[in-house]
């Protein structure tokens, strides 16, 4: 692994919010090509890490490199190489899907004709042609994820960062997303995505990083990380989950008998 430059490499990435350490020295490694999954429980620091790697959140310490380029020192080179779908589907609500793609392409200086050509293809592949001229604010969650992904792909980035791309997405749209991403990675591009859905990560990824409490607790090829178990079992073991919620103590008032 020493001879190749990783798609993503962070060293001792740290972010504090007030007293709370959200990310405490993360060394994220993602090899080039294929799918890499970033898994971890809520609050593990996945979103914070991805935000820092994509230049949306300033780290308090450490470095982040994409294709060997420092995210915070060489922003122009980095930003033209990455595509981002942040958490929370924050899109320009009052633009139509088509306008959103056009806006994105123009911001990145892609010629108008090219933007229109690529938009049309993306809209068709994402099955959004009928809704292309509706405002994004009226889109369903699945449609928003799809238009967000289309916007992130428009400039053909080398590395794609997706924060919870399948959260709240119906199976049909999820399938479309997976198909598009598979085609994208087939040519050697890299997708880094965070998820709670272990089955999906297991199915798609060849590389997994597990985060817990602001640290990477395991990282490597999928088979190495799960070590013969299912990823879910391996994950629960890694993050140290003890079966809360099944105990007898507490919550005695909860349920129909308590009135």
């Amino acid at each position: 692994m020493a001879d190749i430059v990783e798609a993503v490499r962070t060293r001792q990435l740290v972010k504090r919010f007030g007293q709370q350490v959200a990310v405490g020295g993360v060394d994220l490694i993602v090899p080039r090509g294929g799918f890499a999954g970033l898994v971890g429980p809520n609050g593990a620091g996945k979103t914070t890490t991805l935000s820092m790697v994509t230049g949306l959140l300033r780290p308090d310490g450490g470095t982040a490199h994409i294709d060997g380029l420092d995210v915070w020192r060489e922003p122009i080179a980095v930003k033209s190489r990455i595509g981002v779908l942040p958490e929370g589907l924050r899109l320009f609500e009052r633009l139509s899907g088509r306008e959103l793609l056009a806006y994105n392409g123009q911001l990145r200086g892609i010629p108008k004709e090219e933007v229109e050509r690529r938009s049309a293809e993306l809209l068709r592949v994402m099955d959004l042609v009928d809704s292309a001229d509706k405002l994004v604010v009226d889109y369903s969650t699945g449609m928003r994820k799809k238009i967000g992904l289309a916007a992130a792909l428009l400039h053909n980035p080398a590395v794609l960062f997706l924060d919870e791309p399948f959260e709240g997405v119906d199976p049909v749209s999820a399938n479309t997303l997976v198909e598009v991403l598979r085609r994208y990675t087939a040519s050697g591009s890299t997708v880094v995505f965070s998820s709670h859905v272990m089955e999906l990560v297991e199915r798609l990824c060849d590389w997994v990083s597990v985060m817990s409490r602001g640290q990477i607790v395991a990282q490597g090829p999928l088979d190495e990380v799960r070590a013969g178990r299912s990823l879910n079992e391996a994950f629960l073991g890694l993050v140290g989950a003890h079966g809360h919620g099944g105990g007898e103590e507490g919550l005695s008032w909860l349920g129909a008998t308590s009135a």
Binding site: T54, G55, L56, P75, I76, A77, V78, K79, S80, I82, V84, P86, G88, R90, L91, F92, E93, Y103, N104, L107, R108, A151
Partner: peptide
């Protein structure tokens, strides 16, 4: 007014 959508500009601007 852009608010939360401004990330889209931020990930495109490098200078």
């Amino acid at each position: 007014i852009d608010g939360r959508s401004l990330w889209m500009n931020s990930v495109a601007y490098g200078s």
